[in-house]
Amino acid sequence: MKAREGDYAYAYGVVSGMTAKLIDDKTFDELARFRSVEEVVAFLEGTDYEPEIKKVVGKTIEIENLESALKRHFVRIYRSIVSSIPESDRKDLNRIISESLKVENLKIIMRGIHSGMEPEKIEEMLDIMEDEELITELTKAKSVEEFIAGLEKTEYHDVLESKLPEYKELGNLLPLENSLDKHMIDSWRGVVSKDLRRFVEIKTDTINIRTILRCKISDIPSKDYIIEEGHLKDKLSEMERGEVKDVLEILDRTTYGKAAKEAMSEYEKTHSLISFEKRLESDILTFLKENAILRPLGVFSVMSFINAKRREVKNLNTVVICKHYDVPPEEIKEILM
């Protein structure tokens, strides 16, 4: 049974109340200026983080315990929010968010291994995750093949393994990352609510744009990697055939035009694919935020808040680790998102 607009009223109330308790930028500045980790922890004890922080406080404070406390807090808040939305959407939202996080983490690990990063460095970049043990094991893999083998018991193994030869041939991670993306979009089929379907379409479009532009940059034919869905479905073949500037021109007439253009100029300046992708992804976050304002009684308010909470937890993690290593306040402010 589809959820009506009024059914999100309770979730909206919960999320609004939680938004008021988010740590704002000004407070993060103050936290950056605190003299020690203990001060930060004492501050957190007076916030919503109290139940988790309480458990890790003792004569001394272990940084790993603190980090896992922050993660547990996120999971608790996430679960309470999901249980407040209408039942018909719960499973769908859960699937969307947990798949997103998993795939993101897998990609980060793959890239790290591909570029020969140390496992600890890879771990630092990872997002909040559920299967901690498996993920930590995977960061230790010595090669992409080992990584894929480590995923043997999961649903990702087969899709990745099939693309392994292509990866070896091209020396480019694109086929593997793309197969993860395709698998993710596949698993999101059949969502009930109109809003979530729209979200899936936009995510598909963003993935397609990213794939096509990346292929053009690395000079790889993009035909196999495109997902034949989403709003841009009709324009896909046209974009495939053209050059980068043609693609941007076609996109100019859509809502993605601005983001695509800025992402490309980012890339041209920094030659970093990471910032290029970040710029495209930030478009999705803006979409969620704007729609949360236009229609507060809907799933986008919830998704927008979950993103904001993720950001807060990540920033707190940064502050805590930096305080532990005595990083000066100005540098901390730079790193914060």
Binding site: A9, K21, S84
Partner: peptide, 18 residues
């Protein structure tokens, strides 16, 4: 009643948080 229901749900959620 329906209007009060919708508003009331949000009020409950918001008050529950703070």
């Amino acid at each position: 009643a329906r209007g009060l229901e919708i508003a009331g749900n949000t009020a409950a959620g918001a008050t529950g948080e703070n």
